[in-house]
């Protein structure tokens, strides 16, 4: 597979909007054309080649600058937390980021695979509807939430985070799968509408605050607020099915297999048909 590589060569003072650099938008463009594309940075526009060294590796491993080369894999090297909106609106292909990423990583992601080897800022996977975001590191607040002013967050796809996430992970999440291997901050799954959110580590305060539907899967009993109601311990067969569907994922979730849980329903201040399932030892 060919890869188009962007190596960050400056230390950006302002944040840089990298949303034009997705496989679809670069498809069929030569390196020279890509180099001339404008990227917003604060109130200024920068050429891509002012920010990145660009190289295109062909299928044979050598340099390939033909226009018809297949740019379905984009690599960011030496990335920094100033690079926002990486993979915005991506529909297919792959983006791999080495280094940190800024805010809005995978914003409105609609397909393909976005992988980050580093930490992400706030609003990662925000308004995402399909595809996969795999973060080998930590994420900031509002992971998989909705855009400001919108009533729905993530609407589909899969988010894997190996590290910790900030507050409000899964805020207003509507559908899809979000699996966090580390800890989550406060208000995890707040205002959740549906979908499945897992946290293997600890969660902060007000977990499931305002949750309407959806499933929050935990391995440790959280401190819950008064409007989350304890429904007792149960063996739920649907968990077999869910864990089976996770088997192929590159995640610790692939090893889960116990289906004995303590079930909390809520938030009863807001419809109350959401659930927090705390896995119990078999």
């Amino acid at each position: 597979m060919s890869a188009l590589t962007f190596t960050l060569k400056i230390s950006p003072v302002q944040r840089v909007d990298c949303s034009p650099l997705t496989p679809e938008q670069l498809h069929g463009k030569s390196v020279a054309e890509i180099a001339a594309l404008p990227l917003w940075s604060g109130k200024r526009q920068l050429r891509v080649d002012e920010v990145f060294d660009i190289s295109r590796i062909g299928k044979d491993g050598g340099d390939d600058d033909s226009e018809d080369s297949n740019d379905d894999h984009i690599v960011f090297l030496n990335s920094s937390a100033h690079l926002d909106r990486i993979g915005q609106g991506m529909r297919s292909g792959r983006i791999t980021v080495h280094g940190n990423a800024g805010d809005y990583l995978g914003l409105e992601l609609r397909g393909g695979r976005l992988e980050l080897h580093g930490n992400a800022g706030h609003f990662a996977a925000c308004a995402m509807s399909a595809g996969m975001l795999h973060v080998h590191g930590n994420c900031g607040d509002y992971l998989g939430a909705g855009l400001v002013g919108e009533r729905k967050g993530m609407r589909g796809g899969t988010v894997l985070v190996t590290g910790n996430v900030g507050d409000r992970a899964g805020d207003q999440m509507r559908r899809g799968l979000m699996l966090i291997e580390g800890d989550a901050g406060d208000y995890c799954a707040s205002r959740m509408l549906a979908g499945t959110l897992g946290v293997l580590g600890k969660v902060g305060r007000y977990t499931g605050y305002g949750m309407r539907r959806g499933t929050l899967l935990l391995t440790q009993t959280p401190v819950l607020h008064a409007t989350m109601a304890d429904c007792g311990t149960h063996t739920l067969p649907f968990l077999n099915l869910m864990f089976k569907s996770l088997r192929g994922l590159p995640s610790r979730y692939a090893q889960l297999d116990q289906n004995r849980v303590r079930r909390y329903a809520g938030d009863i201040a807001n419809q109350g048909t959401g659930e927090i399932l705390v896995l119990l030892p078999p």
Partner: peptide
């Protein structure tokens, strides 16, 4: 009766219906 829960795994949608022995899926 409103307590049913929908779950989607992959391309398939499932329903969990609370019943007296636990859940009907």
């Amino acid at each position: 009766d409103g307590f049913q829960i929908s779950k989607q795994f992959g391309a398939k949608r499932y329903w969990r219906v609370p019943v007296m022995d636990g859940e009907f899926m």
